[in-house]
Amino acid sequence: MSTTPTDTTPTDTMSDEPRGTAALLVNARGQYLLHLRDANKPHIYDPGTWSIPGGDREGEESSQQAVERELREETGLFVPLEPLTVVDAHGPGGGRSRIRVFLGSWDGDADALPCPEGIMFRWFDAATTAWLTMCPWTSEVIALHQANAPAAGPAPTPAAVPAPRPVTPPETAGGSPVRLNVLGVHLYLQREDGRILLGLRHPDALFAPRTWHFLAGHCEQESVLACLIREAREEAGLTIAPEDLDLVHTVHVLHAAGGRPRLQLVFRARAWTGSPELREPDKCLEWDWFDPERLPEPVVPYARTAIEGIGRGRAYSETGWA
């Protein structure tokens, strides 16, 4: 979903409650979690600015339900939220929308958050936001919060929901952080002629731009199979039943020393419905089928490792650990 309303409707005709919602997350250092919005998508509010996650209410949702859903979809987080304020946003063509903003507290790693929309997440203190290209209403929200709680965010709720993913790595008894693994799921789709499906990633992708890769995604608050089935539908219009997926290879990846390890699971689909379509052209430029022995260039290195491992009948590989 979008991080602010994407139409120009002044208010919700069904209710006086604002249609738009957003979540201001603050960490223990008093920093704000900001989202860099896409500068090129049509009809987007405040393109190319730093803002906060959120989006419109859907159906009969309350603002609380909508903001919790949007935060989960855009960041994978389940964070207790409380109402903060209502602001006005001005969109393309002079459209106007009201946004109810909620406040929450989270102390995780912004770089580890998934970013299915926009460009990236980062933590910033209030002083630094003066040097950023800020969404006007987000600046207004931060100024309001600073005026009322300049030292830090709200105290964590004792009866919080189960820990979100990603979470701040816990410490061992010796004080060293435990590096939690990011979990990735990948689709190994192979036709009767032996060719496998790969997608060419968008040149603006943060990871592996203009590089061929599996249909893939990060597993959030869902099962591995549910994640892969959802990604196949959303990215390529493919329908796959869970009983038709088999785990055929696992790659344990470390991209850089001291970085966060990633466990990449590759599943073969024994059956599926549909032909690959470009459902998310901002992420993938094209789908094509290739001989596993004659892969295109360039290919994501760990994807090549997995393909070669599958060809040799191996179930597991490691890269980057030496």
Rank of each mutant, 00 (worst) to 15 (best):
P166Q: 07
R165D: 05
P170E: 03
I196M: 06
R210A: 13
V167S: 11
F207V: 11
P156V: 01
H213N: 11
L187K: 09
L183R: 11
P164K: 11
R201V: 00
S139Q: 14
A163T: 15
F214Y: 11
L187Y: 08
W131K: 15
D125S: 08
C135V: 04
P150C: 10
P166W: 12
R165N: 04
H213R: 04
A151G: 07
G194F: 02
P162C: 03
A127M: 15
P169S: 08
V178S: 03
P136Y: 10
A216G: 08
I196V: 13
A155C: 07
R191E: 08
T133E: 15
R165K: 10
P170W: 09
V161R: 07
P177D: 02
H218P: 04
N181Y: 02
E140G: 03
L206I: 14
L197S: 10
I142A: 09
L180N: 09
T129D: 10
L132Q: 14
Q190E: 15
A126W: 15
R195L: 01
P158Q: 00
A216F: 05
A208I: 05
A155R: 12
D204F: 02
A127Y: 11
A216V: 06
G184V: 08
D204A: 07
P166L: 10
T168M: 12
F214K: 04
A163G: 07
I142R: 08
P136H: 11
G217M: 08
I196E: 07
A155P: 12
P164S: 07
V182F: 08
A173Y: 00
A151L: 11
P170D: 07
P170Y: 12
W137C: 09
A147I: 06
W137L: 05
D204Y: 01
A155H: 06
V182L: 13
P164N: 09
P169R: 06
P170F: 09
A149L: 01
T138E: 04
L189V: 08
R179V: 01
R179F: 09
H145V: 03
R201C: 06
T129V: 14
E140T: 08
R191N: 05
A126T: 13
E171T: 13
V141K: 06
L189N: 04
L206R: 15
P209N: 05
F207R: 14
A149V: 09
M134K: 10
G217N: 07
H218E: 14
S139T: 09
S176W: 03
G174V: 00
G174R: 06
W212L: 00
G217Y: 02
H213G: 12
L189M: 11
R210F: 05
P158T: 04
I196R: 05
N181W: 13
N181R: 12
A159R: 01
H218R: 15
P177Y: 00
T172K: 02
W131E: 15
H202M: 00
P166R: 12
R195F: 01
R201F: 10
P203S: 03
G174P: 00
Q146T: 13
H145S: 00
L189A: 15
Y188P: 01
G217E: 05
L206N: 15
A152Y: 06
Q190W: 02
E140M: 01
P209Q: 02
R210P: 03
R201G: 08
A143R: 14
A149P: 02
P136Q: 12
A160L: 00
A152Q: 11
L187A: 15
R201M: 05
D193M: 07
D125P: 01
A216K: 12
